[in-house]
Structure formats: structure tokens, C-alpha cells
Amino acid sequence: MGHRIIHPEGWAPAKGYANGVLCADGTLYVGGQIGWTAEQVFEAQDFIGQMRQALQNIRAVVEAAGGTPEDLVRLTWYVTDKAEYLAHQGEVGRAYRDVMGRHFPAMTMVVVKELVEDAARVEIEATAVIAQ
């Protein structure tokens, strides 16, 4: 088959999607992660809290595939409130570094009207390349 599904231990089942797909060449595709916990509960309602959780979720998928945050090569962010993001850029940077360190892959940010989960304020998808 050439690839395997990555699902961090203890996470609630993903229904109709995969949290991660690891290809034989070491490329890991991480599906869009939102600011809910492994139990699919939103503990944070604010942008920074949800962003931090989404990044922690990405990190968990990468680590479940045998990688580290330094293996990330791309992040695509979908945010529902541009003004909220811009008003908190300093906090965004601190929260990002807390979770990912000082590794900054190629990034894109897109402002969207809404996300599938009504409570979600941000969704982030990622690509990593993990040495095999």
C-alpha cells in the first residue's frame, strides 16, 4: 500500500478522515487539527488557547509517526477572525514557540468564513518529512 494511518494513542476515533497519513518515503500528511483535545472537547474558547491545542495536536501526530517538530516543512492555517489574530500576534508567537520551538516551516494563513466545527476558531494542517 505504501502508506499507513497515524492515530495518536488515546485519541478518540477519527470518523471519516485520518489524523495523519505516513508515506513510505517519510512524508507525513497531517489532517487539519483544531483546538480540541484528544477526547474531541474544546477546553479553550479563545484563539490563542485553540491555536496552542491545534499545534499540540499536530505535534502529537508527528511524534506518533516517529518525528519531531523539526521535521515539519509546511503549515497551512485557516482562521475565522483576521482581526483577532492580528490583535494577538505577540501571544501567537509565544504560544507557537512553546509548542514547536524555534522551527518555522513554510506557512500559509487563510481567513475563512467558518469551520466545520462551530466552536473552532482555527484549523491547521501540516506536512512533515520524517527520516525513514
Rank of each mutant, 00 (worst) to 15 (best):
E63P: 06
W77P: 06
V116Q: 14
V110W: 07
H88T: 13
P69C: 05
N57S: 15
A126D: 10
V79A: 11
W77V: 00
P13W: 03
G20Y: 03
L86V: 04
F104E: 14
A60S: 15
K15D: 12
Q45V: 02
G93W: 07
V41S: 12
A14Q: 08
R102L: 11
H88A: 11
R121T: 10
G35I: 01
A44E: 08
L75E: 03
E125W: 02
Q89C: 13
V21Q: 12
V92C: 12
Q56N: 14
Q33S: 06
D98P: 00
E117F: 13
D25R: 09
T80S: 01
V73N: 05
F104H: 13
G35D: 03
L75K: 07
T37P: 01
E91R: 13
A18G: 10
Y96Q: 09
F47L: 15
E91C: 01
T68L: 13
T127F: 10
G16T: 00
R97E: 14
A24G: 10
T80Q: 04
A38F: 02
F42M: 11
R121C: 09
I124H: 09
R59Y: 00
D81Y: 01
V61W: 04
A54V: 06
Y29L: 14
G32P: 05
Y29G: 08
E84M: 04
G66C: 07
I34H: 03
A14N: 07
W36Y: 14
G26K: 01
I124F: 10
V61Y: 05
E114F: 04
V61A: 12
E43T: 12
R97M: 10
M107V: 13
R102E: 15
L72R: 00
G35F: 04
G16M: 06
L55A: 06
G16D: 09
E91L: 11
Q53T: 12
A120L: 09
Q50H: 11
D118T: 13
T37I: 01
R97I: 06
M100I: 03
M107C: 14
G66T: 05
G2E: 10
T27V: 14
G2R: 10
P13Y: 06
G101R: 07
P8I: 00
T76N: 14
G101T: 04
T37K: 01
A65N: 05
T37C: 07
L22I: 06
L55I: 08
A44C: 13
T80G: 05
A24F: 01
R121F: 00
Y29N: 02
E125N: 15
T27M: 13
A131F: 10
I34L: 06
V110Q: 15
Q89G: 04
V112Q: 11
A119E: 15
E91F: 04
